[in-house]
Computed example of a mutant assay.
Amino acid sequence: MEENFQKAVAGRLTVRGEKTRSRIVTTAADLIRVRGVGGTTLDDVALVSKVSKSQLYRHFEDKPALVRAVIDFVGERRIAGERERLGNVRTFAGLRRWRDAVVETNALHEGKYGCSLGSLANEVADQDAIARKKLHELFTAWEELFADLLRRFQQDGLIPQDADIDQLATGFIAALQGGYLLAQTSRDVTPMATALDVSIAHLSLLSREPSEVV
């Protein structure tokens, strides 16, 4: 039903309508980032995005529909950014630079707000099956970026050919998300840095090159 609604809306949107929809989604994403899904109402979104409630409902039939659009928006932006940052990493030094950038970015708010996708998953995965599926697909795409990086490490002889790439990629995602959560609750990025350091150290040990060990 929602899919048909969104297709019908998309089919009749003008350029102005596209801009209005984009503004609503961007505003909702910003509010949810700070207040969470539960703490963000449609009234809040309408007020901050400077649209009427009737305008908002012309684009989204209810709050779950808007939240799903936010997941798409946040997810595409996050995966695109990680693809750019991880796509050319071919050395342990490059992987550590990625780690430093992630930790430093999260330190700007002392770990507050956590991971944009992880926070959404915590709030909606058990209440909205469609949203959960979207989030699962996004995390799978993110994990695949790590898997691609690790395959490059294999090709370049940095880790053994028999290393379990899928397992290692899952481990990186788990360390990253766990790090975000620990940093968020402690308001300190040190646990996040530690979690990522342990993952990189484990990878270094697989190389069996003492000089590579952290």
Rank of each mutant, 00 (worst) to 15 (best):
G36I: 04
N4M: 12
S199T: 10
A101Q: 13
Q155I: 12
D164M: 06
A141T: 05
T14G: 06
V25N: 03
Y180S: 01
A121E: 10
V45T: 03
G111A: 02
E76T: 10
V34A: 08
R33C: 03
D156K: 10
V51A: 06
T41E: 01
A195N: 06
A80M: 07
A195Q: 06
R33M: 05
G171K: 02
W98R: 08
E137R: 11
Y57G: 02
G111E: 02
E212G: 09
S119A: 12
F73E: 09
A174R: 09
K50C: 11
V48L: 10
H202A: 10
D126N: 14
Q6S: 13
V89W: 05
A93C: 02
V48H: 07
L135H: 02
V51E: 01
D43W: 14
R83T: 10
H109K: 14
D44Y: 01
A195S: 05
A125K: 14
F5C: 01
V89F: 03
N88V: 10
F92M: 02
F153K: 02
L138I: 08
V102F: 09
T140D: 14
D72Y: 09
H109G: 10
G94M: 00
R77G: 05
S119R: 14
R58S: 12
F73V: 06
M1G: 14
L56Q: 03
G94R: 00
T185V: 15
G114I: 01
N88K: 12
E82R: 15
D72V: 06
A129Y: 11
R99G: 03
D126V: 13
V34W: 07
V102M: 08
L95I: 02
Q155K: 14
V89L: 03
L117R: 00
R21S: 00
L86H: 04
D126H: 15
T91S: 08
R85F: 08
A131Q: 03
S207L: 03
A141S: 09
A8R: 15
A183R: 00
A46H: 04
K50F: 12
L13W: 07
A175W: 04
T190P: 03
K134T: 08
A10R: 13
E104H: 09
G81M: 04
V67T: 04
K50L: 13
S22W: 11
Y57R: 04
L42F: 05
T20M: 09
L66Y: 02
G39I: 04
F146I: 05
V189D: 01
Y180L: 02
Q6W: 11
A93K: 10
E18Q: 13
L203D: 01
R132A: 06
V25R: 04
E144H: 12
L120G: 00
T26H: 15
V189M: 05
E144M: 10
M1Q: 13
T194A: 12
E123F: 04
E212F: 15
I130A: 11
R151Q: 11
